[in-house]
Write a protein that binds this DNA or RNA. Structure first.
Lengths: 146, 146
DNA sequence: ATATTTTAATTGATATATCAATTATATTTG
DNA sequence: CAAATATAATTGATATATCAATTAAAATAT
């Protein structure tokens, strides 16, 4: 029951894949924590790895532009996942901190996120995943350089 | 100069791929026709194949929800790419028609869209593409059924 | 040291995404 | 047939995407 592909290119399948994955991810996350999005989660995880990231760096890491990140973080501050303080060493930047609520959310959602990934990639061999990654990176390079 | 992957999963690469592809597509389309988006183009192409599609069917074909399609088509009507008339056989639906402007836009953009796809997939063997499609469809199935 | 250029982040405008609720029409069922 | 249910599309609310313009601060150049 594979849906037919109106464009006849695998690029369509790539889009479909990421949409299905985001859908199931958001659904599973929403069952545990109702006021957070997939992208906001990713911001938490990234900051949890390294609090020194600037908004710009976070944007690059998750393929958003600066405007989007500004608004995402704004909302996360409003919802008390993050605290934002001026960076006194470079007053153009902010230092971001994760609140208690942020920490406990990470703890709640980490297993869910892990499970989402496992679910999505279930039944794929390491070899297939490696190949997938390799081919996708070729496409990325093609798009960037042409 | 492959960007590092903060999540450590190929799902991140999938997302990156589609974003890069959409970026280059929009850029190349915008150079020829300035007031149209990638998705609006796709709607034109799909209707050009078959005018009988309902909004709901178009939505399914390009992975949008009904609300998005309503607004996309609304804009396309306003910009005079499409005409919308009540379907007298089922008054919940609309019949969509492509205007002259729509037709000439398709003619202008078809080669661009084709080129975008060729560019993105440049250097990939038929075998690699087939494998890519196969693996992606596994992921789609995983997301849908779990 | 001031003028110029870069950089980080914000803001505004418009398009799209998503969810829930609503409307209008069709279909099904008792 | 009337009531209940289902379907297609719209609308409202909120989040995100994207582009261009702006602001404030930092880095560089003369």
């Amino acid at each position: 029951m594979k849906q037919k592909n109106p464009t006849g290119t695998v690029l369509y399948t790539i889009e479909q894949t990421i949409k299905e994955y985001r859908k199931i991810s958001q659904k599973n996350i929403g069952e545990i924590v109702s006021d957070i999005t997939v992208d906001q989660c990713l911001v938490l995880l990234i900051l949890n790895e390294n609090l020194n990231y600037s908004q710009k760096e976070i944007a690059t890491l998750i393929f958003k532009d600066n405007a989007s990140i500004t608004r995402i973080i704004e909302l996360m501050v409003k919802k008390e996942y993050l605290i934002r303080k001026i960076n006194e060493l470079d007053r153009r930047k902010f230092n971001l901190e994760i609140t208690e609520k942020g920490i406990s959310t990470i703890e709640l959602l980490s297993p869910v996120i892990k499970q989402n990934r496992t679910t999505a990639l279930d039944g794929l061999s390491a070899n297939e995943i490696e190949l997938l990654d390799k081919v996708l990176n070729k496409i990325i390079t093609n798009c960037k350089t042409k």
